[in-house]
Amino acid sequence: MILFGKGFIVEELLEKNGYVLRVVEATTIDTFATMLGMEVKPTAMTVETKNTTSNAGLMAVLGMAGAVSGSGSLCMSEKLACRAASRFLMSDYSEVNDEVLDAISELCNMIVGGLKTTLEEQYGPMGLSMPTVVYGKDYLTRSSNLGRRINVCFQCTDDNFSDEFYVGVCLITENSNRSYLSELAAFHARLAS
C-alpha cells in the first residue's frame, strides 16, 4: 500500500496545470502499455502541503534542468515493482533485486523523458539527470523548497492483480533571471489557489 502523504485532491488542478499533468498521464499510460502491456488509469492528483511525504516501496527519481527545472519521480509498492519488472524483462521476480530496481528506474526515465521532450517544445532545451532509485520502508522524501510536488496517482490492474502508484513532478519555469522570481511566485499562487 502506497502512502500518499499529507496531500489533498485538487479537482481544479487539472484545469490550471492541465498541460503538464496531461503529458504525465499520457506518457505514463503509453510507457506501461508499450513496455509492460499493462493498463493503467489515472485516479487522482495530490499536491504536497508540506515538504515531506511518507513512502513505502520504491521511488525512482530523475532531475531536469534548463528552461524548466525540477524533478520527476515514479513511486510504487514492492509488489507492483516486481510485477512490472517481470513484465518488462520477461522473467519472474518475486522480490526486489538489482534487476527490478534497474527496470523501475528505466520506466521512470521513459516517463520523465517523455515529459521533458514535450516541455522542451514549449519552453526550450533541458537536460536530464541519470535516474536514482530508492528502495526501503518508512522513509521520507523532500522536494525543493522552491516548488511543490504534484503527484498523479494511477491504478494498475493486471489479471487478478491491482495496485496503485504515482508519478510526481516538481517543476519551476525559468525563462530568464529577471522573471524568475515573479514566475516562481505565480507558480506557487497557481498551486495554492
Partner: peptide
C-alpha cells in the same frame, strides 16, 4: 545502454 534492463530487453 547504461540500463541493464534495456540491454536485456534488446538482447531478447
Amino acid at each position: 545502454d547504461d540500463s541493464s534492463a534495456i540491454r536485456k530487453i534488446l538482447q531478447r
